[in-house]
């Protein structure tokens, strides 16, 4: 009875894992395919399309552009979220709590709605088709993520730690520098990585806000998909997969991933 349950559980988890991995494996496989045809499994293994990708300035420019847009969007988003989350925790401020819910609300709207919103917004502002539009729009839409993660981080700090520091002569800034900042570093890094990866992969907002002139990697991948298949786009896809995996492995190495994802009880090794 117990054995059967275990076997069923393993089968179920195996199928879920296969479902999650299958499309990725296919793309990775095709990217190593010698042939121009989109077929899987690859018949002849080759790095031809990787060479093509990295020697085509169109693709490498898109990659560089995407990386810088995402890095800046992550920086913007976390910079805005940090004081809000700190004020909610430290001062139990109502204004900050209200700001946290306003900031998180855009993330809960369908992507096509926020995309339209920002496309209209930048049109009215008269600042169309610029990369910084994408940075700020992503920063605003993804704000819910750093707010949530940083709040978890602040809540994990024992308030007694601050009071203990004060009884030992620490002022407000000393306490922040010596107690709060070290405790928050993993959460801040986590928020940065999370927003970075989501921004890197976002298509619709980037397209509707600046798609005509700013070719981020997802926009170029989609364009290349629509205008006829080209194996280099598989390489673009593989780069995304590798970047995502690497970022989150890094995160798991820096911080306690189960805790960051909201686990309460500590987990033994």
């Amino acid at each position: 009875m117990i054995k059967l349950a275990t076997a069923l559980r393993r089968l179920f988890l195996g199928l879920v894992a296969l479902f999650i991995a299958a499309p990725l494996l296919v793309v990775i496989g095709v990217s190593f395919n010698e042939s121009r045809r989109m077929s899987f499994p690859p018949t002849v293994i080759s790095l031809k399309w990787y060479r093509a990708f990295f020697t085509d300035p169109d693709w490498t420019d898109s990659l560089k552009l995407s990386l810088s847009i995402s890095a800046l969007a992550a920086l913007v988003s976390v910079t805005v979220a940090l004081p809000i989350a700190y004020a909610v925790w430290r001062y139990r401020s109502r204004a900050a709590t209200a700001m946290a819910s306003v900031g998180s609300s855009l993330f809960l709207l369908p992507g096509v709605v926020t995309a339209l919103m920002f496309s209209a917004f930048w049109g009215v502002v008269g600042h169309v088709g610029r990369a910084e539009n994408v940075v700020l729009s992503h920063g605003a839409v993804l704000l819910g993520i750093p707010i949530a993660l940083l709040s978890v981080g602040f809540q994990a700090i024992d308030r007694n730690l601050i009071e203990a520091a004060r009884t030992m002569g620490a002022g407000e800034t000393d306490a922040f520098r010596m107690v709060i900042r070290p405790a928050m570093t993993p959460y801040i890094l986590c928020a940065l990585i999370y927003v970075f990866v989501l921004s890197l992969n976002e298509y619709l907002i980037a397209y509707m806000v600046a798609g005509f002139s700013v070719q981020t990697l997802p926009i170029r991948v989609f364009g290349s998909m629509r205008s006829g298949y080209e194996p280099t786009l598989c390489v673009g896809a593989v780069i995304f997969i590798v970047l995502g995996l690497a970022s989150f492995w890094l995160l798991a190495a820096i911080g306690d991933l189960p805790r960051l994802m909201g686990r309460h009880k500590p987990l033994e090794a």
Binding site: D158, T167, G169
Partner: peptide, 30 residues
């Protein structure tokens, strides 16, 4: 922070990111 009465808290409030030495030396560093 001006009174600097030493206090032991119920939760102890030891800084988890610091070693024993750095915990004890906290006020000295300040």
């Amino acid at each position: 922070n001006a009174r600097q009465f030493g206090m032991v808290f119920q939760s102890l409030a030891l800084f988890p990111h610091l070693s024993v030495c750095d915990n004890v030396a906290f006020s000295l560093r300040l």
